[in-house]
């Protein structure tokens, strides 16, 4: 079963994921099922419920503007596949 509500090919492009035509077929059906399941929420009566900006009723979690230290550079860079001149090196990108 397909859904006209979304375009799997477009979603894959946005997420930078390469998928085959067969996978598109599979995901179209699977994602439609997921949406249908989540769609049950539409049945809930919400007229009396105030909208919230988050799923849990907690607000205002802050930190003070005080430096707490950073990673030692060598350690931070040790995780990088490529490094040079104390920079993280990646495939050349030019906008």
């Amino acid at each position: 079963m397909g859904s006209p509500n979304f375009d799997v090919q477009y979603l894959a492009e946005l997420a930078r994921i390469g998928i085959t035509p067969e996978e598109i077929q599979t995901f179209q059906v699977q994602l439609a099922n997921v949406l249908e399941h989540v769609g049950k929420l539409k049945e809930v009566e919400l007229a009396e419920v105030e909208p919230t900006a988050h799923s849990i009723p907690i607000y205002n979690v802050f930190r003070e503007d005080v430096p707490t230290g950073s990673l030692e550079r060598g350690l931070a860079l040790s995780n990088a596949p490529r490094q040079g001149q104390n920079l993280f090196l990646v495939t050349k990108v030019v906008e």
Binding site: R63, V66, P67, T68, G69, S70, L71, R73, A76, L77, Q85, N86, L87, F88
Partner: peptide
């Protein structure tokens, strides 16, 4: 969103954390 110091023009990658 983290406690790394803000400093511009310094050595690269010295104010970084997870």
């Amino acid at each position: 969103f983290c406690g790394c110091a803000v400093e511009f023009g310094g050595e690269p990658n010295i104010h970084i954390c997870p």
